[in-house]
Computed example of a mutant assay.
Amino acid sequence: MKKRFYSKEFKSEAVRLSYQRENIKELADELGVKVDRIYRWRKLDSEDGVSKKASKPPSSQIDNQEVKELRKALKDAQLELEILKKAVHIFSKSDGKSINS
């Protein structure tokens, strides 16, 4: 069997993806490499002091940003609903009355 060699770019991309994905086995299957090889690349990468894991924002930071966005969307939706309720109230008052009279 022929020994396979992987480029530095391939290895670094595999390491980066391994930190983004939860299931490394699936990633290894997609890339056509063994799982232990990805773990070995990760170890070598962290020993070099160029760990990609540090560049990934913590999940709590992502969650906080998402909460802020959802709160803003909720506030906008509540404001829109309030405006529509007022409009319905105004138009329901003028029911039965002619605009020209």
Rank of each mutant, 00 (worst) to 15 (best):
Asp29Met: 07
Gly32Met: 00
Lys86Arg: 10
Lys2Leu: 12
Leu81Ala: 15
Leu81Met: 08
Lys68Glu: 15
Glu22Ala: 11
Asp29Ser: 07
Ile62Leu: 15
Leu27Asn: 08
Gln78Asn: 12
Phe10Arg: 04
Ile38Ala: 11
Leu27Gly: 10
Asp36Gln: 04
Pro57Val: 11
Asp63Cys: 04
Arg71Thr: 01
Lys2Phe: 06
Asn64Ile: 13
Phe10Pro: 08
Ser51Phe: 07
Ala87Val: 07
Leu81Tyr: 12
Lys11His: 03
Lys11Gly: 06
Phe5His: 11
Ala54Tyr: 06
Ala54Gln: 08
Glu66Ile: 15
Asp95Gly: 02
Val33Ile: 09
Phe91Gln: 05
Glu30Val: 04
Phe5Glu: 13
Ser51Glu: 05
Leu84Ser: 01
Phe10Ile: 05
Glu69Tyr: 12
Glu26Leu: 13
Asn23Ile: 08
Val35Phe: 05
Lys25Ala: 14
Asp48Arg: 11
Asp48Asn: 13
Phe5Leu: 09
Leu31Glu: 04
Leu27Asp: 09
Ile24Val: 15
Ser7Gly: 09
Arg40Asn: 08
Lys72Arg: 15
Ala87Lys: 14
Glu30Lys: 07
Leu74Cys: 09
Phe91Trp: 09
Ala14Leu: 02
Lys72His: 04
Ala73Leu: 14
His89Asn: 13
Ser59Ile: 13
Ile90Asp: 10
Glu80Trp: 02
Ser55Leu: 14
Arg42Asp: 05
Ser51Tyr: 00
Glu66Met: 10
Ile99Gly: 00
Glu30Asp: 13
Ser92Cys: 02
